[in-house]
Design a protein around this nucleic acid. Structure first.
Length: 876
RNA sequence: GCGGACGUGGCGAAACUGGUAGACGCAAGGGACUUAAAAUCCCUCACCUUCGGGUAUACGGGUUCGACCCCCGUCGUCCGCACCA
């Protein structure tokens, strides 16, 4: 029977509508089956989805559909990370309100996502800019305030002079704002902070429990938290050198063992003592100013010269009061790590060494490698920062570094300086508290009120939400909320007097730190329905880009803990499984060179292969176009392929199938027109093979063959089923695709035979069963095609609601094994033998092979290794 | 600088726990069908070869009956952090 080509433009909307009508993807919290929560990182509503989204959501959808078929109660929601600066930029540039801009974008992106045929529960959809959502976020903020997890402090902040806002340390990349690219300045502002450092140790320790996370991400978080063990040591200031009667300087060190190698102390330009010294000495003041400027503007800190200035202050060595050392202000000492002061041991630290050479300070080697010679060991231009044996260190000499660490720690702890132990063991973290204040309009208002008499007060919960005013202007830089004529004026909830509303809004990372919890009960008046949250969390499989490996994931882990302390959830961790998918990349095309180089869109060119050379020409003029590197799709390089265009010309199934094929999902996938064509060919081929045989298959039941010619078909089907199932479990989509190709190739001839009418009903039953399995296997990836094929077979049930088939172990097992036969590790022959043949039988059979006989050439084998069901190796 | 990952045909890749290297797809070449084209179907496709076989998983060693896989060293690519005391 000749059938029409498969037309996704007709079939896909039809099946999407059917799924909607049947409410297939609505999730019931009360459903008693085992839960499975799969979530893809929700998108920012920029206006259009891109191929990265397609890949991300295709992966999540395969998991959701597969788990649903496996009988889980699946939660697969979608929403919008909708606050943020692009909306304000659009407002400024295009005179459109951020709200209008955002909701318009959401509408068009939602239509695009719907066209992909994703199995999402849209009834739980929300945007973080919905008043309903940020209302609950404000409730959470107040709860966290009560638990002491939120606080205000005056702090030096990274100020982005282009976006006019504060940036988190994490949002400063190479000294520039992550969005604007502007050089970041330092300013002192009173800011709101989340106390993420309260959980430093816990966030670090719990990484070990996240065994379904990529090792790489765990390591990145570990380094980011940055735990170190050391000592704080108090150094006595020689009184007559103290600028303002200060008595001591506290330094932090992880290498107290090198204490006898000390030749100076260095403090940060922002250290209180530095400020004292600067007040008394213009040269020092000038130096401190220079440090501050350089610290903010130099991207290439690596190459920055180590510089310092002698403060004139002198300190006594903790282990030898007669030994006085100079105190410098140095540009490489940071105020916000440790104590803002260090002791310099030039022989054991490269920076200290560079510094000492420059200012002619002593360099005394105190640690030498284990096999070194104490008499001849010297330090040249390279410091020795490894472990080893102590030298030139008085009572430490001969100890290893670890023993010396302990000896110094113990001795100084027992020694008092002004009734306080001179040193204390101290664990330090690199992690800083999370500054969340943003001087922007389009974010969640921080729900507090400043009263001159009563101080800083949370907005009473019954007065929530603090809604963003709609009548704002974007024609000037700065925060529109500050300029609003009335919004900031409120009365104090305690005393009733005139008070001022907080005009800062929250960092948008706050919005995305708990949205996965809100999805579990988005209708709830409280931030969570605790029963629902505890039922669904943690997210079983979270999928998104590696770019969120640190910030978003760490903040979410913090929020889970904060919400636990405030009684909103029980979960210990937000995401049980994490998968970081690769990007969609594409070749670049350009004409011209240097400054006149112009990028060309793939849609405007044609690619041919002539004599093995790929060449690109401009469609309109035939001009030759240079083929460039494969890069992440970006508008500036014009190597973008619009998902809409692909869905319009090939259908969603083809797009989904292609982004999941070829490359492993955690690696980049190269988008190519030829590749898409290949994926499209597959959908057509599957449809043609199935539909042509459909008439003949419709009349028989699906039954696997137990014997005869059709047995092989059933065996392939069940073996493929088992394998693909394993691939889906491991998110190995590319391997699943490869096996599906193989399966279709294997079914091509039987289906053709069936279509030609040359088969008996037992054979047809076996083929039908195999086709039903094929449909189930492709359904998570190409769900519309699966429904269409199933309907062609006369089935009336929806594949989207059908159970996963189970394989028959008897059909999976191979009864005969083909052993490769090696002689001295090289394959020389093959042996086909019954699966259950014992070792001796196999050995005898192998030795009886002609090829083995001639290879042995009369010699007796030294050894025969038989690995059951795998291989035979004869050692001669 | 510190930390990590990776390196397999023309290309994307596969290869279980150390057991036949290159499945599957793309590209290419040849053929069939067709007036022709598209579509489809079939065949070939790591390298060398005296057709016996030999050589191949970045390179050099090692362990092993057997190594893409484990160990040591070298080179290269990519990623994260980066003056963190």
């Amino acid at each position: 029977m000749a059938t029409e080509r498969y037309n996704p433009r007709d079939a896909e909307p039809r099946w999407q509508q059917k799924w909607n009508e049947e409410n297939v993807f609505l999730t019931d919290n009360a459903d008693p089956r085992e839960k499975y929560y799969v979530l893809e990182m929700f998108p920012y509503p920029s206006g259009r989805i891109h191929m990265g989204h397609v890949r991300n959501y295709a992966m999540g959808d395969v998991v959701a559909r597969y788990k649903r078929a496996r009988g889980y109660n699946v939660l697969h929601p979608m929403g919008w990370d909708a606050f943020g600066m692009p909306a304000e930029n659009a407002a400024r540039d295009n005179k459109v309100h951020p709200k209008e801009w955002t909701y318009k974008n959401i509408a068009s992106m939602k239509a695009q996502l719907r066209a992909m045929g994703l199995s999402l529960d849209w009834s739980r959809e929300f945007a973080t800019c919905d008043v309903d959502y940020y209302h609950r976020q404000q409730m959470l903020f107040i709860d966290m305030m009560e638990k002491g997890l939120v606080y205000r402090k005056k702090s030096k902040v990274n100020w982005d002079p282009v976006d006019n806002t504060v940036l988190a340390n994490e949002q400063v990349i190479d000294g520039r704002g992550w969005r604007s690219g502007a050089l970041v300045e330092q300013r002192e502002l009173t800011q709101w902070f989340f106390k993420i450092t309260e959980f430093s140790q816990e966030l670090l320790d719990a990484l070990d429990t996240l065994d379904h996370w990529p090792e790489k991400v765990r390591l990145m978080q570990k380094n980011w938290i940055g735990r170190s063990e050391g000592l704080t040591i108090r150094w006595e200031i020689v009184p007559e050198t103290s600028p303002n009667a200060e008595r001591e300087i506290t330094v932090y060190t992880t290498r107290p063992d090198t204490l006898f190698g000390a030749s100076f102390l260095a403090i940060s330009a922002d250290h209180p003592l530095a400020k004292e010294a600067a007040a008394a000495n213009p040269a020092i003041d000038a130096f401190c100013e220079e440090c501050r400027r350089a610290g903010t503007s130099l991207a290439a800190l690596e190459t920055a010269e180590k510089k310092g200035i002698d403060t004139g202050i002198r300190v006594r060595h903790p282990l030898d009061p007669s030994w006085e050392l100079p105190v410098y202000i140095a540009n490489f000492v940071l105020m916000d790590y440790g104590t803002g002061a260090i002791f310099g041991c030039p022989s054991g630290d490269q920076r200290d060494l560079d510094f000492a050479r420059k200012y002619h300070l002593p360099v005394v080697p105190v640690v030498m490698p284990k096999d070194g010679d104490a008499a001849s060991f010297t330090i040249g231009d390279v410091a020795y920062d490894g472990i080893g044996i102590m030298i030139n260190s008085r009572f430490l000499d001969g100890m290893d570094t670890e023993e010396a660490f302990e000896a110094v720690a113990t001795r100084l702890a027992a020694k008092n300086l002004g009734n306080v132990p001179q040193a204390e063991r101290k664990v330090n973290f690199r992690l800083r508290d999370w500054g969340i204040s943003r001087q922007r309009y389009w974010g969640c208002p921080i729900p507090v009120i400043h009263c001159e008499d009563c101080g800083v007060l949370p907005v009473p919960k019954q007065d929530l939400p603090v809604k963003l005013p709609d009548d704002v202007t974007f024609d000037q830089p700065g925060n529109p909320l500050d300029r609003h004529p009335t919004w900031r004026h409120v009365s104090c909830p305690l005393c009733g007097k005139d008070a001022r509303r907080e005009t800062d809004t929250m960092d948008t990372f706050v919005d995305s730190s708990w949205y996965y919890t809100r999805f579990t009960a988005p209708w709830e008046h409280e931030p969570t329905d605790k029963l629902a949250a505890d039922r669904w969390l943690p997210v079983d499989q979270y999928i998104g880009g590696i770019e969120h490996a640190i910030l978003h994931l760490l903040y979410s882990r913090f929020f889970t803990r904060a919400m636990r302390e405030t009684g909103h959830v029980e979960a210990k961790e937000p995401f049980k499984g994490l998968f970081t998918q690769g990007m969609v990349v594409h070749e670049t095309y350009s004409r011209g060179h240097g400054l006149t180089r112009e990028w060309v869109s793939p849609a405007d060119i044609r690619i041919e292969e002539i004599d093995g050379q790929r060449r690109a020409t401009l469609l309109s003029t035939g001009e030759e176009i240079a083929i460039g590197a494969i890069e992440k799709m970006s508008k500036s390089k014009k190597n973008v392929v619009d998902p809409d265009d692909i869905i319009a010309s090939y259908g969603a199934d083809t797009a989904r199938f292609f982004v999941l094929s070829d490359s492993p999902p955690d690696r980049d996938v190269i988008w190519s027109e030829a590749g898409v064509e290949g994926a499209y060919r597959f959908t057509q081929r599957m449809w043609r093979l199935v539909s042509e045989a459909a008439d003949a298959l419709r009349t028989v039941a699906a039954t696997p063959a137990k014997e005869g010619e059709a047995l092989a078909i059933s065996q392939v089907a069940h073996r493929t089923l088992k394998a693909v199932q394993g691939d889906y479990d491991k998110l190995a989509f590319n391997k699943a695709v490869a096996r599906i190709y193989e399966f279709v190739n294997a079914l091509a001839a039987p289906l053709a035979k069936v279509a030609a009418g040359a088969t008996d009903s037992g054979y047809r039953s076996a083929v039908r069963e195999a086709v039903e399995i094929l449909i189930a296997l492709v359904a998570p990836i190409t769900p519309h095609l699966a429904e269409e094929c199933s309907a062609a077979l006369g089935n009336t049930h929806l594949i989207a609601m059908s159970a996963w088939p189970s394989y028959d172990q008897a059909l999976v097992i191979e009864n005969e094994i083909v052993y490769p036969v090696q002689i001295n590790g090289k394959k020389r022959a093959e042996l086909t033998i019954a699966r259950d043949a014992d070792q001796n039988t196999v050995q005898e059979a192998v030795l009886a092979l002609d090829a083995v006989g001639s290879a042995l050439n009369g010699q007796a084998p030294k050894k025969i290794i038989v690995v059951p069901q795998r291989i035979v190796n004869i050692v001669v």
